[in-house]
Amino acid sequence: MTGIAKYIVRFILLIFVQVFVLDRIHLHQMVTPYVYFLFIIWLPFKMPRMALMLVAFFVGLAMDSFRHHPGFHAAACVLIAYVKPFLANLLSPQQGKDFTYEEPSVKSFGTFTAYFTFITMLSLLHNAWLFLLEAWQFGNIWYFIVKTVLSTAISILLILITELIFTRKQKFKTNTV
């Protein structure tokens, strides 16, 4: 699979897993396992930021349409799409201006720690913004904080498991021909 087909399949799989598997697991009221935003994390480095945000917006809306209340997931997805390039610039080793690999992964970040930080920051932002918007009407700060922290832990665990199960082969890009 190459190009855009890979991303379409990935998008459908992640949304379906989220809606039909993870949303049906009721661990505790404090824990909502989220993994679908891995689609946005795995989008290529080179994608223009404008396109990145628009794609994230539609991923979020797709997720929202399964929850029958538009806006929540779209807002969280747009936020991580906006922050992602900054974080990638900070954390990944760059050679010149180009990234050596196409997509974010342990390999492209060089060390596991850098990639782990990348995932943790984005999961935390996604969950925090989502739960903050959801909790707006309820207004209980401790409930919000505990829920964010626990859900983020589960999200990170799920992302690492996905990373182990589905190994992505990526070519090393060099400027030398």
């Binding site: 404008m50 945000m53 628009l54 538009p70 806006g71 779209a74 807002a75």
Partner: peptide, 21 residues
């Protein structure tokens, strides 16, 4: 500031959708 403006615009749309749903 085109990226920041797009970001704010999209967030605005989302919040509008949430509140006016």
């Amino acid at each position: 500031y085109i990226h920041l403006l797009t970001f704010l615009l999209l967030q605005g749309i989302c919040i509008y959708l949430i509140s006016r749903y």
